[in-house]
Simulated assay, not measured.
Amino acid sequence: MISETGRIVAIETDGLWVETIQRSTCGSCAAEKGCGQSLMARLMGHTSYLWVLLEGRDPADYRIDQEIQIGVPESVVVNGSLFVYLTPLFGMLAGAGVAQQLWASDGLSAIGALVGLLAGGALVRWRAHQTRYDRRLQPVLLDDRQPVTLIPS
């Protein structure tokens, strides 16, 4: 489980909107001083807003600006990253390959690659839209009501 500290920015009956500042990896590698990501995080403080389900908890137990711990399973991050990066890449390669086989033209192969890349991106967007409410893919609150288990039983 990857955990992150966030600040509550809105409270609703079935969930919380949490603001996170992505800095969990910065400072942990040797290239921190020469890293563009570290510099951008310091300058811009890249924030993300996440929807966290309360899962039966009382919303009255939380308040705006309260800091909480949230977690996302590693498998969600790994599988999502692979899908988001590889689907458009494979679409681009397939589009270029099909165009090359059909027309044997470098210009049309480049257009086929672009069409494949856009189709792969559209597939990623469609899948994200289809799974946006999937409870297995949502961040969870890490507190005494839901202890983190690192080893599946």
Rank of each mutant, 00 (worst) to 15 (best):
L117P: 00
V140T: 15
P147Y: 13
I151S: 09
A119D: 08
Y133E: 15
I151R: 14
V78Q: 10
L137N: 15
A128C: 14
I21C: 02
L93D: 07
L123S: 09
V148Y: 05
S28P: 00
P59N: 01
S3P: 00
T20V: 10
P152H: 06
A94I: 04
N79C: 05
A128V: 11
I64L: 14
G34F: 04
M44Q: 13
D14Q: 14
G56M: 10
G107Q: 12
E32R: 11
Q66A: 10
C29G: 06
L137W: 11
W51S: 15
V148D: 05
C26P: 06
Y49V: 03
A31V: 07
E55P: 11
A60D: 15
A94F: 11
R42C: 04
I8L: 09
T20W: 00
S24K: 00
R135Q: 14
L141W: 03
I68D: 08
A119V: 13
R135D: 12
W17F: 05
R127V: 06
V98Y: 12
T149E: 07
P139F: 02
V77D: 05
F83S: 01
V124N: 13
L102M: 10
G116L: 01
Q100W: 14
V18G: 10
A30M: 11
R127W: 12
G34P: 00
I151H: 06
S48H: 13
V9H: 00
L108Y: 09
T20S: 02
R135I: 11
Q37A: 09
P59L: 01
A94C: 08
Q138R: 12
L150S: 09
L142F: 02
A113I: 00
Y62G: 02
D143L: 13
A94W: 01
L118P: 00
A94Q: 03
H129C: 08
S3I: 03
